[in-house]
Nucleic acid binder design. Structure first.
Length: 600
DNA sequence: GCAAGGTC
């Protein structure tokens, strides 16, 4: 008997379906000589410090450097503290029984570093010795699955990938556990002061932005505005220059005459391509902007929709689909032909050539972009419906044509030079789907401009001196923080580190929402209206760690570079030694620095 | 009491 193990039930069932296996059992499916089972993500994790004899929280234990890491069944929090997750225990028992009976195992966990780790941790924990092969596919269409099974890889091909995954896991444990205890103990804080490779740079970003915003000194500047009249249609023009002093602006204002000469008129069409399909992060950002949902709420609503088979896999980091999935898109779009809001646009799309901007198999990683499945939704809550509409509306947008705008710039002479600009949508294209108001217009922009010609002289009906102030960068909210986490590392000077981080950023799509919740739970940050601001505790921690590597995105870049080398066959023990050295250093530094910490 | 990673 061959046993196929997937990362999650949905994938296990999908593969079983392709094989025509139909006998559903508790925790697996049988048929056609195969058994299909699954994990629920990571069933096993690196064991807690006490499993290595480090009891209690004690400076004497630090740094904790286990000789050999152990695995433990995933825990859940109950009122009696941490206990083994019974569902996980049960599934692990099922997997053990199946592995014991197996002649061969086929590994169908997600095609990536963590997918490899999920399987290997199970395999080694169960002390399994059966041979295994690897299924490596990036979409779960019938064709992709069949093709993948014709091209199974030897399991050992992925040994170095497992090494890199295991190193990632151990390193996060070593640095996180030790740094957390070191700072919590030395600061004599009442609560836990947690630190980690991802959470601490995130906290640092929030704190740095908050301080920059709070300490910003606004600069006053001046502009001169006028209103011109073209056959009764008024429009606004602003001085070409900004002025540092009121006097300079006043002088320009005084020179404005009763009429202005149209010096030039420039009208250019601009094509605006449709947005890409959603990945989790872009959807979380949009839901935060449109509905004020937190990243965590959006993920949980999307998970509900996924479990009801209404949308595809939610925790994806790709905004693209492959050609195989694209082949199914026309039929999917047609399902929305009678939708109350999008029906007209869906029908229209059915008659036109689809935009293939979101189609690129090379940019599909473990999972493709989020799409509706085409199943008809029933009894959705208002919030679920809102998320579902964002997913399906985005699909219609993504395959729509460009939006064509006309950007007009007019220069007016009256004493000095003035500019008027306006944007008119000529062909809405994808913008017809939601028919939203255009993104926030600059206040000097006119909604529409009258037709004027060069050389014309128009009466000036009003003029004024405007006093304005420069504005600081805004505080982070969930949407802008998620964006910043995705792009973290883009400004690293070191070319190699920047390169190593360019596809990842800080954290992963699956973990970012939970990480924001962790910072809130630790009382490091708080929600203030839609903004995320640091608390006094958060700022105190930031002050202590801000100059250390643990507070910088570069640390992730440096690790990613080394992990990629390990995947390519480089020495594991060398990296492990570096991490141990770093762990000793950061622990020692924090044991000292924490003593100086001011906690209110 | 602690990380980051995955998912019901």
């Amino acid at each position: 008997m061959k046993v196929i193990i997937a990362e999650k039930p949905s994938v296990g069932r999908e593969i079983a379906k392709v094989f025509g296996a139909t006998t559903k059992k508790d925790g697996y499916i049988e048929g056609k000589g195969y058994t299909f089972t699954w994990a629920f993500g990571h069933l096993l994790q690196l064991a807690a410090p006490q499993e290595y004899g480090y009891y209690g929280w004690n400076v004497q234990n630090l740094p904790m450097l286990p000789k050999k890491f152990k695995l433990a069944i995933r825990k859940i929090k109950t009122k009696n503290g941490l206990v083994e997750d019974p569902g996980v225990r049960k599934q692990l028992d099922i997997i053990k029984t199946l592995f014991d009976e197996a002649t061969e195992i086929i590994v169908a966990t997600d095609a990536g570093r963590e997918g490899e780790l999920i399987f290997r941790y199970i395999y080694y924990y169960l002390k399994c010795k059966k041979p295994f092969k690897r299924l490596w596919i990036s979409s779960q269409t019938d064709a992709a699955i069949k093709d993948g099974f014709r091209n199974l890889k030897p399991g050992t091909d992925y040994d170095t990938l497992f090494n890199s995954a295991h190193c990632r896991s151990q390193s996060d444990w070593l640095v996180g556990m030790n740094a957390t205890q070191a700072l919590s103990l030395s600061s004599r804080s009442r609560g836990v002061l947690s630190l980690g490779r991802v959470q601490t740079p995130t906290l640092a970003m929030i704190c740095a932005r908050y301080l920059e915003n709070k300490n910003f000194i606004p600069q006053t500047y001046y502009q001169v505005a006028m209103q011109l009249d073209k056959d009764g249609q008024l429009f606004k023009a602003i001085s070409e220059k900004n002025f540092k002093t009121r006097e300079e602006a006043q002088a320009v204002l005084d020179l404005v005459e009763a009429a202005g000469l149209i010096e030039s008129v420039e009208a250019k069409p601009r094509k605006e391509p449709p947005p890409l399909l959603h990945d989790l992060s872009s959807l979380q950002q949009e839901a935060n902007k449109r509905k004020g949902f937190t990243a965590d709420q959006t993920l949980s609503l999307l998970q509900n929709l996924y479990e009801s088979k209404l949308v595809t896999y939610p925790r994806t980091g790709s905004r693209y689909i492959g050609d195989d999935v694209f082949a199914e898109v026309p039929a999917l779009i047609a399902k929305f032909n009678h939708h109350t809001e999008f029906g007209k646009q869906a029908t229209l799309l059915g008659e036109t050539k689809l935009n293939k901007r979101s189609v690129n198999a090379k940019k599909v990683t473990d999972h493709h972009a989020i799409l509706p499945t085409g199943e008809t939704p029933r009894n959705l809550s208002a919030d679920q419906q809102a998320i579902y509409d964002m997913v399906s509306g985005r699909m219609l947008e993504a395959f729509h044509g460009d939006c064509i705008k006309e950007i007009t710039k007019i220069t007016v002479l009256s004493g000095s030079k003035f500019m008027a600009s306006g944007t008119v949508i000529q062909t809405p294209g994808w913008r017809a789907v939601f028919n939203d108001k255009d993104e926030e217009k600059k206040d000097e922009e006119n909604a529409t401009l009258p037709k004027v010609t060069q050389g014309e002289i128009l009466p000036i009906v009003d003029k004024a001196l405007l006093e304005k102030q420069t504005k600081p960068k805004p505080l982070y909210n969930e949407a802008s923080l998620l964006k910043a986490l995705e792009t973290a590392g883009k400004e690293i000077d070191d070319e190699e580190l920047r390169q190593a981080m360019k596809d990842s950023g800080l954290g992963t799509p699956a973990t970012r929402a939970a990480m924001i919740e962790t910072l809130l739970k630790r009382n490091y940050i708080a929600r203030e209206k839609k903004n995320l601001v640091p608390t006094s505790t958060g700022l105190s921690v930031y002050e202590v760690v801000k100059t250390h590597r643990i507070a910088q995105a570069e640390l992730t870049g440096a690790w990613e570079k080394r992990l990629e080398e390990i995947r390519g066959g480089a020495s594991v023990s060398e990296f492990q030694e570096e991490i141990k050295t770093y762990t000793r250093d950061i622990t020692r530094e924090l044991l000292l620095a924490g003593k100086e910490m001011v906690l209110s």
